[in-house]
Design a protein around this nucleic acid. Structure first.
Lengths: 152, 152
DNA sequence: CTCTTTGCAAAACATTTGCATGCCT
DNA sequence: AGGCATGCAAATGTTTTGCAAAGAG
């Protein structure tokens, strides 16, 4: 086990604590199901499909129902516990990077792992967009991570 | 009517001809329904929802069925007649930019209009991604276009 | 004790598929 | 004529909703 990209990989405990704080700040209750959900994301800081999450939660323990899973995933994304994006025609979820400095991601389309990208294109675009009201931007690079590229 | 961003707005005829060529090259037949579909996109070079397209096709003429609409939208995206992206939790479609030089877009989240962005961040990211196999990238800026910003 | 969260079931919605008929080339 | 395109209807898959019961603070 090497620690590549250790700059953005935090310990499960750190991520879990951060998630609990965000729940509290936003007035959500900390339930057993939510703890299980947060555990999955904290222990594997990559992108998951909603169905993958639901399967994991159903594996050994009593199932978390689909609607509760979805409700929590989307709620968590809204309050900043999770990052959400879409690729391979699927909605994907990952625990938010922490600390939350602005950055972008390379995302492995096979395993969901991310590699941080420090360049941000926004400083070069303002000139093209005078008069427009910028709300958000998205910059993502997709491909195979070094591990998946070797395996394939 | 001013011609802002005229560099990427081509005449409906140009877009239509280009679409017909792409259909032919890819072995698809040019049907009446497909011509209607292409007309909509050529005459309004912005992003549309699939449902919006379907409604337009159903407005005065005999309806194009949903499955034919979807089949064609996704087929057209695959052969390069359309560009496809996702925002506001919806799959959106727009006629491809022509000529097809590499660039990115500001997209108005209200009306679907686009403004080209000429900067591409990819030249700055390679160093972060050694060992990875890059397949694609996505860079999009969202907000309100000058017209929608003023109206709102 | 109160209010949120959860489960269940069903609804809503978007997309896909199989198959018979119809239309381009 | 032959093969792709289309419509219909139904299946699929994902996300949402309403409501009663259970759990957290």
């Amino acid at each position: 086990m090497t620690h590549s990209h250790s700059e953005t990989v935090h310990s499960p405990d750190e991520m879990t604590q951060r998630a609990y704080e965000l729940l509290k700040e936003s007035g959500f209750k900390l339930t057993k199901k939510r703890r299980e959900l947060i555990d999955i994301f904290s222990n594997d800081q990559r992108y998951f499909k909603a169905t993958e999450i639901h399967e994991r939660l159903s594996a050994d323990r009593p199932t978390m129902s689909y609607n509760t899973t979805y409700r929590n995933l989307y709620d968590f994304a809204e309050i900043g516990i999770l990052e959400m994006t879409e690729y391979n025609q699927e909605q994907m979820f990952k625990v938010s990077c922490f600390p939350n400095t602005h950055h972008h991601h390379f995302i492995c389309t096979q395993c969901g792992k991310v590699i941080p990208i420090h360049a941000c294109p926004m400083d070069q675009v303002e000139s093209d967009l005078s008069g427009a009201e910028i709300q958000s931007h998205r910059f993502e690079v997709f491909g195979l991570c070094p591990q998946c590229a070797q395996a394939g």
